[in-house]
Amino acid sequence: MFEKLSRSAGLRARRHYVQAMFRFMGHALEAISQVDRKVMDDARLLPNGLIFQMMVLPSGPSLVLEHTGEGRLRYLGPNYDGEVDLSIRFKHMAHAFLVLSFQEKTTEAFANDRMVVDGDISLAVRMTRVLDRMESIILPRLIASRAVKEYPDDLGLLQKVPGAIGVYRRVAFSMLRDLRKEALPI
């Protein structure tokens, strides 16, 4: 009985974490796409007005962004339920959690069939690169190098990152610290 209770509490915590992480990533991507050249270069070739969604099957939570042009991304909030052009869907909450708690790289999740893409694959490749870049900028190097395929060599001095991004880094740190308290292997 108690076991059952704590299990469902654990599952609830996991869902909350994924929800919070999606929201955080949405804001962070929006901020980074205003300043980071590499993200802008990759995002620029997305069609203008493209709506990108990353979601957990069967019914969320999800992260939805719009490409507003010139490589800039706009976070559309946690409750967007309109049309999407490109969607990357996790097959299960457990898989989303593995990726969003940086225990499995996004590319690894693709390789492990954890996600299905609905839409143009080449655009999904681009968005994966954008996500990787955001993670490299935001996360502590040790964790980022586990989250992305190859840690970029132009990020040696993170002090150079503009002020707004610093805020996101601090939020990421505190989210990770809370996760660690729950004794997760990150």
Binding site: F110, S122, R126, K149
Partner: peptide, 13 residues
């Protein structure tokens, strides 16, 4: 090539 789906599975970025 940079936008091809197969590039995701390449061991190096």
């Amino acid at each position: 090539a940079l936008d091809d789906g197969s590039i995701i599975y390449n061991p190096r970025e």
